[in-house]
Design a protein around this nucleic acid. Structure first.
Lengths: 190, 190
DNA sequence: AGCTAAAAGTGACCTAAATCACTTTTCAAG
DNA sequence: CTTGAAAAGTGATTTAGGTCACTTTTAGCT
């Protein structure tokens, strides 16, 4: 566990250095969780008590429409943060599912604890500020890709951007992420 | 100008209170700008030196594809922040345009100044942290709407969510925002 | 008020991608 | 190693929405 916490500290310190005291304070606000493939981290309709930093593994975050079809909002793997951010932030029942595509391990941060460490340690507030901003930028680019590109070029774009991800994830899930049917994706390129 | 700065202070203090000293420090890092309808705030290919808080007015942020077609990323009005966030954050030439749909006024914040006030005044770091997080949540919902909803229901959804906006913006721009053609939008509902 | 230009509406036709139905391949669990 | 299930591929058909061409309406500007 020491080792895993060290990974989290490194993750924070990629942006801002922390003193040992600060880190000890921060660290004490996380809790560890481990799940097997196919287990749920978050389920629609239930409370979302945490956001999760992924130590190891791979998850998908998705919503299910009225026809039972799955729409993938995000894939998240090592070093990513994942949650039903909307439900978490507003402390409402969730609307999306997050489940494990591989055995996974997490550090869990409650809203209360997040606010506590942000107010106590400014470097942490700045860390989350920068992270959220980068996330925002990524989502803007995804929106632009949905508005401007054909399904096929979105696929090529993703192949270039996250080649390792594609190898870890079934193509039908990639299709769902791109907003295209499994069959159509299968007809693309090579 | 006092009055306009007061609006900005109110905007910050919706989330975290500031002492007068803190506010004076923060305030001194903004500069004022005013533009007429049809003028550009940001142009693709040029440096993006600021992010902008809108005192008054309405702008559209959009990219232009290889066929010359406009795709609207965001509408922004009073109290909104707008920029080419990607180019701004990485201090690269921009890829999108932002221009005024109405005469507009802004407070401009450079990247250097943003980092300065965030590091100096933790409440400001927390302000931007929460704002970015909320922005992230909104974009996730927009992505879900693009993945799960038909063009028509996206339109209805927008009508409900931002009815005032629709009245200030030509329908062909709404169409572009929704990722649907002007003609198709025109055939919806009433 | 009158004029121009932008915006909005509409019909006819076209196309990218969805859907349905089925086959083949791959993978994981006993 | 085998076997059942999930994933992937493929053909035929349908459909939401795009494109083109034109008309009508609305809004700004002298």
């Amino acid at each position: 566990m020491e080792e895993k916490l060290h990974l989290l500290r490194q993750h924070f310190e990629e942006l801002f250095a922390l003193t040992d005291d600060q880190w000890n304070f921060v660290q004490s606000h996380f809790q560890y969780k481990s799940l097997k493939k196919h287990q749920f981290l978050i389920q629609a309709g239930q409370a979302v008590n945490f956001e999760y930093w992924i130590i190891k593994g791979l998850v998908k975050a998705y919503s299910i429409d009225d026809k039972g079809k799955e729409h993938i909002l995000q894939f998240a793997m090592e070093n990513y943060w994942v949650s039903d951010h909307c439900a978490f932030q507003h402390q409402e029942p969730g609307t999306i599912f997050v489940d494990c595509l591989e055995d996974s391990e997490f550090f869990c941060l409650s809203l209360e604890n997040r606010e506590k460490i942000c107010l106590e340690v400014p470097a942490v507030a700045n860390f989350f500020r920068i992270k959220s901003n980068n996330g925002y930028i990524n989502l803007q680019q995804r929106i632009l890709s949905l508005l401007t590109m054909t399904a096929e070029s979105r696929y090529e774009y993703l192949l270039n951007k996250l080649p390792k991800l594609i190898q870890r994830v079934p193509k039908k899930l990639i299709a769902s992420y791109l907003g295209v049917s499994r069959e159509t994706l299968s007809r693309f390129n090579s």
